[in-house]
Design a protein around this nucleic acid. Structure first.
Length: 356
DNA sequence: CAAGCGTGGTA
DNA sequence: TTACCAAGCTT
């Protein structure tokens, strides 16, 4: 069957399948545009199973858009701890603040305005517009590109940004004006459960429309170029305790990797300098009683840290930019996974019980 | 546009 | 073990 000549039949097959087979997910039990927005940001490059508990905790902590707008950034990042891509959390709060300041707390219902909000790109704009407001707008993510590349045998490289416009145009041609939410979510649900990288075509509700299936090319699509060479950086981290039993920590810079997250002092390990020498050179602080704590490798999306962590003590004051913090304070701060791992090891070593 | 930006799951 | 992801956005 020709897809474009059978638009109505295609829409009906897709939407009927979606309404029957869709998974029961927390954000599918609401039309609250703020909740939809939160879920869409969390779902960026992140699995559904990972997001669910974060979503539940987040909307419990910040039940309304106003609650999030008024929150401390540190509390927002704490709720994001372990979810990754932490600028998403900071940008979400920034966007929410813009809605309060410029739109009287009402999320804009058109693409032009909603797209101006921090952290809202072309996909998230279309998702919120179609799902929460019922506006017939495209919401093209990786799922949609995979599904449509197969249905229509589109062989453009989906790794190239400008390719997305091809799929946006296709969606605007096909979209169901009566139920754009189910249409867009149907395409995504299909990509997530049936039209996966290794597709299960025999279960597909729209395989009769699929050119790739017809020609047996579903395994060759979508076309996606890839170029990633990963750097490995050796890091040395120091958990330094003062006589009050407090730990030396700092907040990372406001831009770049793990922006604004907290960490134990850390330096790139170059050459064969000892841990103590590295730390004195970096911060000019004398430390003693150095003992190995925990070694591990942490893999980011674009680089790898080979971590060696040490325990030590000092009697000096904190250097510029650092703070000595109690166990409960360390527990409460937002920390990325490598820092959490070191902190967990410290808590085990010293049998620390925190209020958190 | 290309590169930077997290984490955990899976083949 | 390596590679590739999973509902992308910013600079």
């Amino acid at each position: 069957m020709q897809l474009f000549e059978q638009k109505e039949n295609f829409r009906k097959a897709l939407i009927t399948w979606y309404l029957t087979e869709k998974r029961d997910l927390p954000w599918r039990r609401t039309n609250n545009p703020y909740y939809i927005w939160v879920s869409e940001v969390m779902l960026q490059q992140t699995r559904v199973d990972t997001v669910i508990p974060y979503y539940e905790r987040f909307i419990e902590k910040f039940p309304t858009l106003a609650d999030l707008a008024e929150a401390k950034e540190e509390d927002v990042l704490k709720m994001w701890e372990g979810l990754g891509y932490y600028s998403r959390g900071r940008n979400l709060q920034a966007g929410v603040k813009e809605v309060v300041a410029e739109y009287d707390g009402q999320i804009p219902g058109n693409r032009k305005d909603i797209s101006r909000l921090k952290g809202v790109g072309p996909y998230t704009a279309g998702a919120v517009l179609s799902i929460a407001f019922g506006v017939p707008e495209h919401a093209v993510d990786g799922n949609v590109m995979r599904v449509l590349s197969r249905l229509l045998l589109i062989e453009e490289d989906i790794a190239i940004p400008r390719t997305r416009k091809i799929f946006e145009d296709v969606v605007m041609e096909l979209i169901d004006e009566e139920d754009p939410s189910s249409f867009n979510q149907g395409l995504m649900e299909l990509g997530a459960t049936i039209c996966t990288p290794n597709p299960r075509c025999l279960l597909c509700p729209v395989r009769d429309f699929c050119i790739a299936f017809h020609e047996g090319k579903q395994g060759e699509l979508p076309v996606k170029s890839k170029k990633v060479r990963m750097k490995t950086i050796p890091q040395v981290s120091f958990a330094i305790r003062n006589p009050d039993g407090k730990w030396l920590m700092r907040q990372r810079p406001t831009t770049g990797l793990l922006a604004n997250m907290w960490e134990f002092p850390m330096v790139e390990s170059t050459g064969d300098a000892s841990a103590e020498e590295l730390f004195r050179a970096a911060y000019g602080l004398e430390i003693s009683n150095i003992k190995p704590l925990l070694d591990f490798t942490h893999i980011f999306s674009h680089l790898t840290w080979n971590m060696k962590s040490y325990l030590s003590t000092t009697v000096k004051e904190a250097p510029e930019g650092f703070k000595f913090l109690s166990n409960d304070e360390v527990e409460a701060l937002p920390k990325a996974i490598p820092v959490v791992k070191i902190w967990e090891e410290i808590k085990k070593t010293f049998e620390i019980n925190t209020k958190g």
